[in-house]
Amino acid sequence: MKLKLSPQTLLILEAFLDHPAEWKYGYDLSRSTGLKSGTLYPLLMRLADRKLLETAWETSDPGKPPRHMYRFTPEGMQFAREKRQARATGQVGAPVLNEARG
């Protein structure tokens, strides 16, 4: 299965790469990347489907509803770093850049 690396996907990957070990929330990601919910969630779903992101429900205080959180899996982190490196070395546009096998 292929993952198209649109500019929006790259934005999300970059946002996760800033603090890769940290869990991130949907709304915070939306604010940091400037993506609307209608764009953000399909991308998060695809990344999670391809096991590049792991998801969890925040264990919060009783009475407070839990929140969905996201962070890179080891494969996701490796994938994002490879893509960042590929872009840095000017390989943008190469077909392999736009594909991730899940």
Partner: peptide, 14 residues
């Protein structure tokens, strides 16, 4: 996809 919709709903509070 129900968990994802639940996630979207939870974000509303923030």
């Amino acid at each position: 996809r129900r968990a994802w919709v639940e996630a979207m709903l939870r974000e509303l509070d923030f």
